[in-house]
Design a binder for these strands. Structure first.
Lengths: 208, 208
DNA sequence: CATCGTACTTACCGATCGGTAGGTTGTCAA
DNA sequence: TTGACAACCTACCGATCGGTAAGTACGATG
């Protein structure tokens, strides 16, 4: 099913937005097609089945996330700097396109149900890469993969949960207050990364 | 629509589980009724409309969350101890009934769509109460509500995101590793609370 | 000019969605 | 004994769901 590469990317962007705001079950093929400016049948013609369309949306997201980490690893030598840079850039792209974060969180929530999906999970390489950096910082022998993940997870949670809360926070506290929170939040993230680095044993990228 | 109080509570428990694992749109009245051991029409007879059933589920959850905080405030005098106790007990009940956390997170995700819901948000009192404790610790003049929320939010995220990830984490890393993470996670939370308390200015409930 | 594949179209399909209408049954107070 | 009401039931409703079948418009290639 060829289709010009950039047209296809545009379609997937729109689909991403719809899956993000309504979820897999909440976003119907008719909805998506309408948003894309074509008919349901044309949409099915290009992507075959709803599941396949969704799978493409998912894999684009996981690739994007993984790219951020790889870039951070390539840019810095010290694992401490790598971790900080990775977390910051993951937060940055999540902030500017919250749709992707929403989809990831929805995926966490729905995983119980849509288990027909291959057992391997889309974000596994992303998590593994972060775990790897963390273990290098601590010294690989001193920290199991699971323990490293336990250390990182609060940070991922702090980022994702805040981003996913955007609509509600703005509605509850007003636009001005919400903007202020958004301005301040990266600092919270950074401080938490410093805290994590300290608890792992020191190196460069030291705090304050 | 009277119905024995505990029977009603049982029905709402089941409904909570289904809304949690499938979402508002993914859980059909027929699904819920089947799980409850009655017909769709009987379910509608008791609750009128799907929205009303869901609203009841939501308000039960927010009440439960608020109760935890009120209990923590009543139990301790120092606001530092109150905050620590509140966070710990919120985490504890979230951990033992992850359904409620799932619903809250789904609510965050869907709020863009289901805006017919009254604008006031179910968890506002819960957040306000936490914000209040935090501001007492820092000294009310020195910390606006928004800034206090910014400080607390990473913690809420760390808790909720981890709990909501249960199925995926267990699937990805195996039951044994996941159990180990769960055993260690409360420590991560506690350390993060200590970090927050330190950044607010010291008091009792000091670290390690 | 013929033909072949792409990019659609209209016309459907059965299943399921939330919800309504109108009984039937059982319990309990008057 | 009767009447009222809660607690169901069967039988529907129109709308929408994901998906299929079969045809059409059209540009490129032989």
């Amino acid at each position: 099913m060829p289709l010009r590469e950039d047209t296809r990317a545009q379609l997937l962007d729109s689909a991403t937005r719809l899956f993000a705001s309504r979820g897999f079950y909440g976003a119907s093929l008719a909805n998506i097609a309408e948003a894309l400016g074509l008919t349901k049948q044309a949409l099915l013609h290009h992507f075959g089945r709803k599941e396949k369309l969704y799978a493409e949306v998912l894999s684009r997201i996981s690739n994007r996330m993984l790219e951020q980490i790889d870039a951070a690893r390539a840019q810095y030598d010290s694992p401490q700097d790598q971790l900080l840079a990775a977390m910051q850039s993951v937060y940055a792209i999540s902030e500017q396109s919250p749709h992707e974060t929403r989809i990831i969180v929805r995926e966490l929530l729905d995983s119980e149900r849509r288990t027909e999906q291959v057992h391997s999970w889309y974000l596994q390489p992303f998590l593994d890469s972060l775990v790897d950096i963390t273990r290098v910082i601590a010294g690989k022998q001193t920290l199991t993969k699971t323990d490293a993940l336990t250390k990182i997870y609060p940070l991922l949670g702090a980022m994702s949960y805040f981003i996913v809360s955007d609509v509600v926070l703005e509605q509850m506290y007003g636009q001005a207050n919400y903007r202020r929170m958004r301005r301040r939040y990266p600092d919270q993230i950074q401080q938490q990364v410093y805290g994590l680095l300290n608890s792992l044993g020191s190196g460069s990228a030291s705090a304050e």
